[in-house]
């Protein structure tokens, strides 16, 4: 097994670990409060499987304004969580936690996926 691949895999697994912890943390600290609140209950985006709304909320809280506009104008707008409503009912800590989680989850996923693809293609041999 290649040295580089080994190191990258270790980094990926550590990232995975932190992502999972942040996922549960964010879900308990922020999304549970949002789910209970009547006004925000229906703006958490589409739930493909249980727990998907946590991902939706985190992504909505970490999107730049231009991306937000793009998504709201697209035909699949109601799949995403409603950022306007969410910004009203969350505080700074919630938003930072959400941004951390979405950063970690995206980088870890992309990194591991790239690693798996590179391995499948045979880049490391």
């Amino acid at each position: 097994m290649n040295e580089i691949e080994d190191t990258l895999l270790t980094i990926g697994l550590i990232g995975l670990f932190f992502t999972m912890i942040l996922y549960v943390l964010f879900g308990q600290v922020t999304v549970r409060k949002l789910r209970k609140n009547k006004e925000t209950k229906d703006s958490l985006g589409i739930e493909f499987a249980s727990g998907w709304d946590i991902l939706n909320v985190a992504l909505a809280l970490s999107r730049p304004k231009w991306l937000e506009k793009r998504i709201m104008a697209s035909p699949t707008a109601h799949f995403a969580a409603d950022a306007k409503v969410l910004y009203q009912y969350t505080n700074r800590f919630d938003r930072i936690l959400g941004r951390l989680f979405s950063f970690f989850s995206l980088t870890t996923t992309l990194m591991l996926l790239a690693l798996a693809l590179a391995d499948a293609v045979g880049l490391f041999d």
């Binding site: 995975l16 992502t19 493909f48 499987a49 991902l55 996923t109």
Partner: peptide, 12 residues
């Protein structure tokens, strides 16, 4: 965990 994350990220 990794496969669930991948699937959800790609779908979203």
């Amino acid at each position: 965990a990794a496969s669930a994350l991948t699937a959800s990220t790609i779908m979203s």
